[in-house]
Design a binder for these strands. Structure first.
Lengths: 334, 334
DNA sequence: ACCGGTACCGATACCGGTATCGATATCAGG
DNA sequence: CCTGATATCGATACCGGTATCGGTACCGGT
């Protein structure tokens, strides 16, 4: 029907018998307009179905209502939950999230950041602290709030919301050791790309070493980080080292796969072998066997990140208070 | 550093000694520019770090490079995978996805659509065919490609990529019946909101009736559609009707929970009770027991939807070829 | 030398809003 | 009745690009 005749502010103004400027002010609730005009403009706007044009207002103003979000992957429920938290946090603010998937590829990441910046977004949320130098420069010069999420092990560009993966790895090693485990293996995916999983492994190993232990077996694969891979690698690891009494996985998906293998083979968990993952997926709670995990507040991270951009967190302008580190809780239900 | 002195096209033009217009053409690869000018402009643009401003070009042109995506939830891996497919399909097209989460709320959906339209997006991808009348009107008048995904049971506004949930439900009922099951129950979540799950259930019941059967028990809950809920409801259902020999779940998450319950209680699956879900999550393959599911091509749906917007699918302009229905394959591995 | 055609370029007018600042009207105080 | 303050508006200039259309310059053909 209405082909190219989009209702514009000028139309509203004309219909309401005021100037564009007054109409603009009335609709935005900016000052210097009489109550009568406001009423009239708002009414006619509604009547003729005025919608407004974000492009125009963003171009005119100096900033848009867009907020860019970069995640490495969406095949993993974890990042979907972060997005979910972001969507939740954004609600009511009038902001709108634009997302990009980097596939753990620094160059892709750089290009997406570039592209997003050219929308003059209100802020940017990027995953991790390990961008390329070019990307970092871009972010530094952007002159908008930039929130790096998930990780806090490193130097943030601006704000930072996440957790220490080194510490998470260390804590998990200590947990396993406290459970009396000593023949421990590691199973992971995509280690060459997922720097956070690397950091966890590093912390884990460091903590083992501190206790005079080291990994008995280490299996990694390029396959997708999913239950299937976890199950297969667990079978391999146990075949190789049948007396393993603990396995640390790079995340819960793999760990769940490990649990499935053990169930299928009648290996008791955690009695004979304790399985430890990372994230605290919902799934974990209902598994028929108890596996250990570090519960991370994904949704909370997303929400908190948004607050740095909406300014809900403006109270903390000091650089040192612009990093928020959550401590994942480890659930060990014997 | 570069506070408000963003490099603009005028800067590039000046530095290259040409007019804004020529610079614009050179950078876009539009015609009517000498090879020498193109080279010069591109070089100086790179030198002084010109980035371009999507807002301006989108406002000036009639359409932006944004593409709006609406999903009901991101707590469910299914929609994350759809987004993932969309991100994949978009790659290289210069488009950028904006997403919104409706929470299965029609009014929220309407507001998000409204808001997205005011970015003059290149297209819109919305989940499902059951929008409010207001939303539908908005979409119809938008004069941009609109792709409704996941569902094809209904009348699409424009293009449509998904599958028939009625048929999926019917097919699953037939599968269970063919397996010799007759005391069948249903377990679901959020039925009042998730219209696609409703449709599956409807088809399922219809098919049961056609075979002289009906549901023995039906358990639903408002709890999140996750494994935990599935496990709890399964316990309830089996307590109530111990001789159930088949359970249809509204999705795989719940079904997995059901499997966990059965494993924990030593109930053999599928011998004593067959469990059927929906989606074909990766998880299903590695479960220690075999459960039945309808495999849906989530990623593919996302990718295909994008093609309608980028025009990669422009060959099909006829309305009847603007609906693409995938048929989910049911995996029954005894 | 004249002419039409082609290749290349730039001035100008937008796109649809908002910032700015000056104009007009109204009103209290003197 | 005049003055200055206050409230309300609107004309104009942008924001940073692109569409349009009207020049130049240079070409080969006659």
């Amino acid at each position: 029907m209405d082909e190219k005749n989009r209702v514009t502010l000028a139309d509203v103004a004309a219909a309401a018998g005021v100037s564009k400027m007054t109409a603009s002010r009335a609709l935005r609730g900016a000052g210097d307009v009489s109550a009568r005009s406001i009423e009239k403009v708002r009414q006619t706007a509604k009547d003729i179905g005025y919608v407004g044009n974000h492009l125009a207002s963003s171009l005119s103003g100096k900033r848009s209502d867009l907020i860019g979000v970069l995640v490495p992957s969406l095949a993993n429920i974890v990042f979907a939950e972060v997005l979910s938290g972001i969507a939740e946090g954004i609600e009511g603010s009038g902001l709108q999230p634009v997302f990009g998937v980097t596939d753990y590829d620094l160059e892709k990441e750089y290009n997406i950041i570039r592209s997003m910046l050219s929308w003059n977004p209100a802020g940017l949320i990027v995953t991790g602290l390990d961008q390329s130098d070019d990307s970092t420069r871009l972010l530094k010069n952007a002159d908008i709030p930039v929130v790096q999420i998930m990780d806090v092990d490193g130097t943030p560009v601006d704000a930072c919301v996440g957790l220490s993966h080194y510490s998470a790895g260390e804590a998990m090693a200590e947990t396993l050791i406290a459970m009396g485990r000593s023949r421990i293996g590691y199973i992971g995916c995509d280690l060459n790309k997922d720097t956070r999983a690397q950091k966890r492994l590093e912390g884990f190993k460091r903590s083992l070493a501190k206790n005079g232990l080291s990994l008995v077996v280490e299996k990694t694969s390029e396959n997708p980080s999913a239950a299937k891979t976890g199950r297969d690698l667990t079978a391999l690891a146990l075949a190789e080292e049948p007396d393993l009494d603990g396995i640390y996985y790079s995340n819960d998906d793999l760990a769940a796969g490990g649990a499935f293998h053990c169930i299928a083979c009648g290996i008791s968990v955690p009695e004979r072998v304790a399985l430890a993952g990372f994230n605290g997926l919902d799934l974990i709670d209902s598994l028929p066997v108890k596996i250990i995990t570090s519960r991370t507040p994904r949704r909370e991270i997303g929400k908190t990140a948004v607050e740095f951009i909406t300014g809900a967190n403006r109270t903390n302008e000091k650089p040192e208070s612009r990093t928020i580190a959550f401590t994942p809780s480890i659930s060990v239900e014997t």
